[in-house]
Amino acid sequence: MTTNETPRGSIEISPSVIATLASHAALQTYGVVGMASPNLASDIAASLTRDPNRGIAVRLDGAHIVIDVYVIITHGTRIASVANSLINSVRYAVEQATGLSVGQVNVRVQGLRVSKTE
């Protein structure tokens, strides 16, 4: 739970909210074709999911929010470029919506997807 004290009351933001924001931003990032569960590589197939927090781990490191994003990237893109865009988008989306500062966004590329025609 991330708490922000203001003179007129406190604002608490649950990690799952942050995860949802991060997930949304991740899925809009070009080159990301799926979220992956951190542990189960076999889960890759079911990458389109209704669980909004899938593939996202949010934790607090002191005062900083650290977001781990587990993704599947489309084959044929430069992974480093996609990952960099992903970091920027997730950070921006979370900071914009919550006003909190994001310490780190770590991208874990769990898989590549080769599209059918190639």
């Binding site: 070009y30 489309t74 893109t77 430069r78 470029s81 996609v82 960099n84 865009s85 190639e118």
Partner: peptide, 22 residues
């Protein structure tokens, strides 16, 4: 284009090139 791609739009551009070349 793929090797030099930077950022979101650069990546999309490189994908456009790949499709075109294909």
């Amino acid at each position: 284009a793929m090797m030099g791609s930077r950022g979101n739009s650069g990546t999309i551009l490189s994908q456009l090139w790949q499709g075109f070349a294909h």
